[in-house]
Amino acid sequence: MRGKFTIAGLSALLFFHLFASSSYSCVGRLLVLAVGDTPDQVVMAEMLSLLVNERTGTSVELIKPGNLEACKEAVKQDKAQLFLNYVGVAQAEIGDAAVTGNPQEVYNIVRQHYLDSYDMVWLKPFGFNGPMDKNNKVEGGSSIAPVSTSEVLKRFPVLDRVINKLKNKVDDDTIADLVKKSKDKDVKDVVKEFLKSKKMI
């Protein structure tokens, strides 16, 4: 036939633009993930995207609205359904109320604060601390976890179950390694190899 069919670009475009955005779809729905601009966010967003798509058929579109506050705002407005946040960043929002030396306790306080204030739900932390700076260094970091809303989790009933499979699967060394690999290789390939090695996809 005429023309050359570019199969290489098909999979992502197909899911995002042909199948995912509306209910005529016979494949699944679209979930938008707001991504911050640090290397660890980019890697984890790609990992989540692949995991959710592979395990549920739901397509995940990544958007970059700006900083974490912009990501949170996108989720509040349902322009995105998920973003990745750091416990320390959220703790800073609360101020003194969250001051404690116990990371789990801080997580619990932050989690409750987001639920009460924004109807947002913190899922399980991935297991590493961030954010990374442009040199891939972390100073004074805190654990990172996906954050969504109660309403979204009702709309995507298996989402939390799937995402929580990443709980404690990525430690500091692992994320550093993935970020490093993604400099020389497509990050999509890097996270795919990782998830396959963990038998998660």
Partner: peptide, 11 residues
């Protein structure tokens, strides 16, 4: 059944 486009693609 096909596209009339000279550079066709899926969809």
């Amino acid at each position: 059944f096909t596209s009339i486009s000279p550079s066709p693609s899926a969809g």
